[in-house]
Computed example of a mutant assay.
Amino acid sequence: MSVTVVPITPADVQRVAQFLHTHLNSRLHVDVWARSIIPPWRADAPNHGFMLLSAATVVGVYLAFYSERAIGGRRERFCNLGGWCVLPEYRLSSFRLLKAILAQEGYHFTDLTPSGNVIGINERLGFRHLDSTLLLAPNLPWPAPPGRVTSDPGRIERLLTGDDLRRYLDHRETAAARHTVLTDSGGTCHVVFRADRPKNLPFFASLVHVSDPLVFRRMFRPFTGHLLVRHRIPATLVEPRVAGHRPRPSVRLRSARRRMFHSPYLRPDQIDLLYSELVCVPF
């Protein structure tokens, strides 16, 4: 049976969400999938990825999340590769979805959650690996100076300014991002993390963004104490590339997460985890 590849438009979001709920992750309700597919930040998105259709029925999906970032004084356009799911009988057409996304000119591409044979496919297409060393730090009940650690949205908006405030406003309505602001005598740090849930249990906080690594380093213990007491999260997963340091106490995990990108000229240190499926999809 013939299969066609077409862009995912806003009108397609509900049926794409139903497909992903049924065939990729049923723990996420259809409405959660639908909310996750369309990011809340402003972006000139040509689509929300691509889908395979067979007789007008969705048989495969590859999500994409678009953003425009200021890097080195230039405006750079990004396309983050999201969930990729194709029904078994149509797997021979899977690569057509990836080819359609990568054929779009003028983008830097990131794939922040590749697994299995996707990693090898990306490597053959010229994707490079980011350092994804992963550490596990226990969240202990470290005390925090009064008012120096907050997850209150109102206080966060009052404390942040400039680009930090803009990034917070871009991400505050996403389904997966959680926000904390740390302050000390040296400055203010906006931290974005997600709660990863193995076996449906909120267990790990995974760092996504740290705006000021120096403040974060000084305030790491109060931050993890806040996660334990306020969010009931007993441990934090730390990528030193994101955090800017290797906290103590922590242990290195054998299985690091894979992070990959494809760009004609950007450096690995210019690639971060924001504006991606990591903040949009609470998988």
Rank of each mutant, 00 (worst) to 15 (best):
residue 225 G to A: 03
residue 263 S to Y: 00
residue 21 H to A: 14
residue 90 Y to G: 07
residue 202 P to H: 09
residue 3 V to E: 04
residue 277 E to N: 13
residue 258 R to V: 15
residue 116 G to D: 12
residue 71 I to M: 08
residue 89 E to V: 14
residue 252 R to C: 08
residue 159 L to I: 14
residue 22 T to R: 13
residue 264 P to M: 04
residue 89 E to G: 05
residue 42 R to E: 14
residue 261 F to C: 12
residue 131 D to P: 01
residue 224 T to E: 00
residue 117 N to A: 12
residue 244 G to L: 04
residue 45 A to G: 00
residue 13 V to W: 02
residue 213 P to K: 14
residue 74 R to T: 06
residue 273 L to V: 03
residue 244 G to W: 01
residue 134 L to W: 00
residue 24 L to H: 02
residue 27 R to F: 08
residue 71 I to L: 11
residue 139 N to P: 11
residue 248 R to K: 15
residue 179 H to V: 09
residue 86 V to D: 01
residue 136 L to R: 02
residue 280 C to M: 08
residue 214 L to C: 09
residue 197 R to W: 07
residue 119 I to W: 05
residue 235 A to V: 15
residue 5 V to W: 02
residue 150 T to D: 00
residue 17 A to F: 13
residue 136 L to C: 12
residue 195 A to M: 09
residue 110 T to A: 14
residue 29 H to S: 11
residue 17 A to T: 10
residue 256 A to K: 11
residue 282 P to F: 09
residue 253 L to V: 13
residue 19 F to H: 04
residue 155 R to E: 14
residue 219 M to N: 04
residue 222 P to Q: 10
residue 188 T to P: 13
residue 194 R to G: 06
residue 20 L to Y: 03
residue 38 I to A: 03
residue 224 T to V: 13
residue 146 P to N: 05
residue 231 H to D: 13
residue 131 D to N: 09
residue 96 R to H: 15
residue 202 P to G: 11
residue 137 A to M: 08
residue 62 Y to I: 02
residue 267 R to E: 11
residue 149 V to R: 00
residue 167 R to L: 09
residue 64 A to W: 12
residue 189 C to I: 09
residue 247 P to F: 12
residue 57 T to M: 04
residue 230 R to Q: 14
residue 277 E to Y: 06
residue 3 V to G: 14
residue 26 S to L: 04
residue 166 R to G: 05
residue 155 R to Q: 09
residue 223 F to T: 01
residue 208 V to L: 15
residue 43 A to I: 03
residue 111 D to W: 01
residue 277 E to I: 10
residue 135 L to I: 06
residue 163 D to V: 15
residue 145 P to N: 03
residue 253 L to S: 03
residue 69 R to T: 03
residue 104 Q to T: 03
residue 93 S to T: 10
residue 170 D to P: 06
residue 100 A to Y: 12
residue 90 Y to H: 14
residue 265 Y to T: 08
residue 128 R to S: 15
residue 210 V to D: 02
residue 23 H to W: 15
residue 273 L to Y: 01
residue 25 N to E: 10
residue 161 T to Q: 07
residue 8 I to D: 07
residue 251 V to S: 11
residue 177 A to W: 05
residue 164 D to I: 13
residue 67 S to L: 04
residue 119 I to E: 03
residue 21 H to F: 11
residue 72 G to P: 05
residue 24 L to E: 04
residue 148 R to F: 09
residue 130 L to C: 07
residue 156 I to P: 01
residue 141 P to T: 13
residue 91 R to G: 12
residue 155 R to Y: 01
residue 29 H to L: 15
residue 75 R to H: 07
residue 215 V to M: 01
residue 8 I to E: 07
residue 197 R to N: 10
residue 14 Q to I: 02
residue 34 A to R: 09
